[in-house]
Simulated assay, not measured.
Amino acid sequence: MRTFDFAPLYRSSVGFDRLFDLMDQATRAETSAATWPPYNIEKLADDAYRITLAVAGFAADEIELTQNGNTLLVSGQRKNEGERQFLHRGIAARQFRQTFNLADHVKVTGAGLDNGLLSVELVREVPEAFKPRRIPIGGASSAVGQDNAPVQVEDRAKAA
């Protein structure tokens, strides 16, 4: 497996710590516990996403979703099934913890469990304060009208 040294990037950039931490995590060897349960991440629209996890055998009250800042934690723990004797056990019943790092302003809008698939709906809602806006260019006095409207300048030779 390849390893990458991100130190030069840390030295020449400011405010990208979270991105570099994510890249560090991605380059680490994955264990089987980190990849279970299997999941899909779908882009439904420009600002809408869905995470679908295969959680066969888990009931809705055995799964917990927690969003803390930019992190979504999905965990599941089966309740005691009582004494059952299995001749073959192919459906995993172990507990799981799956963490997803979310972009800024991504919020969970809903979740549903259907046919052993847990669907988590996400949407990115950028507040007005963070959306791009035009900045007028001007000196000490601000221009009247549109941001880029031409400003009338009087000819001093005619005025004299």
Rank of each mutant, 00 (worst) to 15 (best):
L22V: 09
L22Q: 14
L22E: 13
Q25H: 07
R28E: 13
R28V: 06
A29Y: 01
A29T: 11
T31H: 08
S32R: 14
A34F: 01
P37S: 01
N40E: 15
I41L: 13
K43R: 15
D46G: 14
D47F: 08
A48S: 14
A48D: 12
I51Q: 03
V55R: 02
A56S: 09
A56N: 09
F58Y: 15
A59L: 09
A59R: 09
A59Q: 08
A60L: 12
A60I: 08
I63M: 07
Q67E: 09
N68Y: 06
G69Q: 02
T71S: 12
L72M: 05
L73Y: 01
L73E: 04
S75N: 12
S75M: 12
Q77A: 14
R78C: 06
E83F: 15
R84G: 02
F86T: 06
H88S: 12
R89P: 00
G90R: 09
I91W: 05
I91Y: 04
A92K: 06
R94V: 09
R94H: 11
R94K: 12
F96K: 00
R97V: 10
Q98K: 15
Q98V: 05
Q98E: 05
N101M: 10
H105T: 05
V108Y: 05
G110H: 01
A111W: 00
N115A: 14
N115T: 06
L117M: 11
L118R: 04
L118P: 01
L118C: 04
L118K: 03
V120P: 07
V120F: 01
V123W: 00
V123F: 06
R124M: 04
E125M: 07
E125H: 04
V126Y: 02
E128R: 07
R133N: 01
R134F: 10
R134A: 12
I135M: 08
P136W: 07
G139N: 10
A140Q: 07
S141E: 13
S142I: 06
A143T: 11
V144K: 13
G145R: 05
D147P: 00
N148K: 07
N148Q: 09
A149T: 10
P150D: 01
V151L: 12
V153H: 05
V153A: 10
E154S: 12
E154Y: 08
A157T: 13
K158M: 09
